[in-house]
């Protein structure tokens, strides 16, 4: 059950977004004139064939890169004005397909480190990290082990717990269930839905999985750099 309605102001507004890469010989345009507004409390999935620009769209929306053309606004303010680093630090969190954890730390330390960097105001960061890890299905023993000693599914849960710890407005995830077994993928999808519907977050997941897409509120499809939206039935 989403809390927001289409009349609420968008948390993230993309206008006239185009992006190109300059290779050795030629310039490749990946995204063309994309306009879309993302809202709080909605779970979005972005589908599309390989090379369609899904990850590029996520990277631009998550502030990992700057677009070659167009604007992205967070709560009405241009990301260029906010600053990409500050935007990433305060407003968004990203879960990567390859987990991208800090390999010399335990699961809990990965989460507390993210809280320290994003300056989350929590009195007992370790307790909060254990709580979040438990929420994504990792017990205390697993939470205190080095992340390299955890399975792929467990590492992905750590990455999600880390994203949750940052207490941000938007959560981006790039193929978060691509390397996971079906049960774990289901669990993680459930967490995304819960975040959007119970905590009023905007959740945007890039995926190839139609199954995951059917559990989202809105499915966006990227094809040849252009975006189309398909609301799912409730």
């Amino acid at each position: 059950m989403t809390r927001t309605t289409p009349t609420d102001p968008p948390v993230l507004q993309i206008t006239g977004l185009s992006h190109s890469y300059t290779g050795q010989a030629r310039r490749t345009t990946v995204l063309r004139q994309i306009d879309y507004s993302f809202r709080r409390g909605v779970f979005y999935t972005v589908l599309g064939p390989s090379g369609s620009g899904k990850t590029t769209l996520l990277s631009l929306a998550a502030g990992l890169d700057a677009p070659t053309q167009g604007t992205i606004r967070f709560d009405g303010e241009d990301l260029r004005a906010i600053g990409l680093g500050r935007y990433r630090n305060r407003h968004v969190a990203t879960v990567f397909q390859q987990y991208n954890l800090l390999t010399y730390m335990s699961a809990a330390q990965n989460v507390t480190t993210a809280m320290e960097i994003t300056r989350v105001k929590v009195r007992d960061k370790k307790a909060r990290a254990l709580e979040l890890l438990e929420r994504v299905g990792l017990d205390r023993h697993q939470a205190t082990r080095n992340v390299m000693q955890l399975s792929g599914g467990q590492q992905q849960r750590v990455a999600i717990a880390r994203a949750l710890a940052c207490s941000v407005d938007i959560l981006f995830a790039d193929e978060p269930t691509g390397n996971l077994d079906e049960d774990t993928a289901q669990d993680i999808t459930g967490i995304f839905r819960e975040l959007a519907h119970d905590q009023d977050k905007c959740v945007v997941v890039v995926t190839h999985s139609q199954q995951l897409a059917t559990r989202s509120d809105v499915t966006l499809t990227l094809r040849k750099g252009r975006l189309t939206a398909t609301p799912q039935r409730a």
Binding site: G85, R86, R88, N100, L102, T118
Partner: peptide, 13 residues
């Protein structure tokens, strides 16, 4: 590099 990328993605200075 990956570690640096993770920290940068978290908005580390």
């Amino acid at each position: 590099r990956d570690e640096l990328g993770v920290l940068l993605s978290l908005g580390e200075k």
